[in-house]
Design a binder for these strands. Structure first.
Lengths: 155, 155
DNA sequence: CCAAAACAAGACATTTAGATCCGATATTCA
DNA sequence: TGAATATCGGATCTAAATGTCTTGTTTTGG
């Protein structure tokens, strides 16, 4: 139902939302998110073009979220990589259906609308703040990802 | 979001629900539903294997709905051709997430659950009975499809 | 300036969905 | 039985999504 690219992109932005202090390299992100590195690079390019992330080349460079997690919705990310295509006109090209869809396509579009609404209403900040024993991308329950990776670096 | 095959399959069963009296040939269905005939044939084979439709070979043969429209849900059709894959375990294979998904995947699965629920709750009969100026597959507002095609046959 | 680090961009390979074709098989009816 | 009608099943083709690779460009720091 959701493409692989969407799944990967969401993992990437979740990662970035927990690493706002400094740019993250594609390699580091790929390792944690378990996404093939070259493919992740391509997805990040797309997110960059859509203004979801910012990239910085050269030593010490990498990828940063373009805006605070509280202002970035799941829908924005999804629509950047694989837009939810609402059904606006009759797929059979029946002109007389024009404005109001037939009951069949109305139900399909309603489903799309529900998903769109749900994704529009959850921001990355909410996702990360949610009290839940499982932390996104992180193997260790209750331990914020940022803290964990920082600790790793020191060793 | 929904595959082409799902769209085609739904058109097909809607057609069949309006032609319960006698078997419909793939050709006739393809013409009305505007689905490529050879591809529709393959989709119908799948629906047949899943017990959604029954097929009858030979002269006067064709495809029939396997049960009354009131007992066939959109979900059954969707799941027969392109199943909605709920997220049951962590896609990253993080074992500690096992039972309860992380907030990210929980939201994605919630979206899938909403769609699943909506589709489970609408039967073909409901879709066709809904008071709506646009009739599925039919160009002429308010005219039931079955009547129209019968009229055509006489000419 | 030069070398290393990191992303950018496009070419290339692989896989899967979408679509087509054809010979085989089943069924009806004369 | 034989001819006509339809689906069945597999082989094939195409296009798009997914995944990989290579070369170039930007940036930093010695």
């Amino acid at each position: 139902m959701f493409s692989q690219s969407v799944e990967y992109a969401l993992r990437a932005v979740v990662y970035l939302a927990t690493h706002m202090e400094e740019p993250s390299t594609t390699e580091a992100m790929a390792a944690t998110t378990k996404v093939p590195a070259p493919y992740l690079a391509k997805i990040l390019q797309g997110l960059n073009r859509h203004g979801i992330v910012k990239s910085q080349r050269g030593i010490g460079g990498g990828i940063l979220l373009a805006k605070p997690p509280a202002e970035l919705t799941i829908l924005e990310v999804v629509n950047a990589v694989d837009p939810i295509k609402r059904i606006k006109t009759c797929p059979l090209g029946i002109s007389t259906h024009g404005v109001n869809l037939c009951p069949l396509h109305k139900r399909m579009d309603d489903a799309l609308a529900m998903v769109e609404k749900a994704f529009h209403e959850s921001t990355l900040a909410e996702v990360l703040a949610e009290p839940n024993p499982s932390v996104p991308l992180c193997e260790f329950p209750g331990v914020p990802l940022g803290v964990r990776t920082k600790a790793k670096k020191m060793s």
